[in-house]
Write a protein that binds this DNA or RNA. Structure first.
Ligand SMILES: [Mn+2]
Ligand SMILES: [Mn+2]
Ligand SMILES: [Zn+2]
Ligand SMILES: [Zn+2]
Lengths: 141, 141
DNA sequence: TGTTGACTTAGACAAAGTCCAAGTTAGGAT
DNA sequence: ATCCTAACTTGGACTTTGTCTAAGTCAACA
């Protein structure tokens, strides 16, 4: 985390308290917060931080490749600090919980040339859907 | 398409001109329109159709499994009439063009048990990213 | 300790989607 | 063929998510 702040300073960023707090909020594993969730948690530590600054900072971090934008549903985008290790997402259809997962093999290999329509492929995003242990236990009959 | 309208009547739907027009607009292959795009095309045929009715009808069709909701970006949801054949999506990072594609094999097979966190999997959505032939040709240097 | 351009802020604005009360109508009943 | 009514549609208010701007603040360098 402090290495992130170091990298940002190396890139000419001013290290403001607002940016520090956003970076702190985004620390951890399996973290996939919406912008408003980031704002809510940032306000705990820095009451006067504005929504605009949270959006600005998230957008800048995405541009620098330090965090990822994840769109697992049609709702708000989620922000993912796990940007330096390729991974996919497993989402619970019951409660919305999101886990980072690492499928085997190259996902692009499954798409035959005849199905590529002349596109030059650059990657693939996979959202696995299912029910988490909690939601499986408390499932509707 | 008229078979869709038959199925809907079989399910107790009133066949209104509005619903007929929405169904017509959603006919075809590689069709992935936003709600507002559906509305814009519906208005060509039925000028007084409202946005609310388009949203209502799309939601009902999704609930019945007759169309799919696709969220390939963080923008508006897209509606896909190709609901009766499993498929994935190939999206151009340049112009946003979307094609239906059919990868080989079972996408769930790539996720080892150790990476499933006790979830009961039900499916996977894959978005392949790349540049379409047009965008490859006119690429920035 | 000053200076200054980068940064932050509040609030207006926009896009996407939901909800409601009032008006209209498809389709079964007569 | 006409009537009746629950189902449907409508316009507009409202919500959520995100963008933009003008004015004020401050981190970093001198
Ligand atoms: Mn992740
Ligand atoms: Mn499709
Ligand atoms: Zn769950
Ligand atoms: Zn393209």
């Amino acid at each position: 985390m402090s290495d992130l702040l170091e990298r940002l300073r190396g890139r000419g960023w001013r290290l403001t308290s607002q940016r520090r707090v956003v970076a702190e909020v985004l620390d951890g594993e399996h973290v996939h917060l919406t912008a408003d969730e980031v704002h809510a948690r940032a306000v705990q530590r820095l009451p006067e931080i504005s929504r605009a600054t949270v959006y600005n900072t998230l957008g800048e971090l995405v541009g620098l490749g330090e965090i990822l934008e994840v769109a697992t549903d049609g709702r708000a985008k989620r922000y993912d600090p796990n940007a330096h290790q390729a991974h996919q997402h497993l989402v619970c259809s019951g409660c919305g919980a999101i886990r980072d997962v690492h499928p085997q093999g190259d996902p692009l290999a499954a798409l035959p040339a005849a199905e590529r329509f002349g596109f030059v492929l650059s990657g693939a995003e996979i959202t696995y859907r299912g029910l988490c242990p909690d939601c499986t236990t408390n499932a509707v009959p």
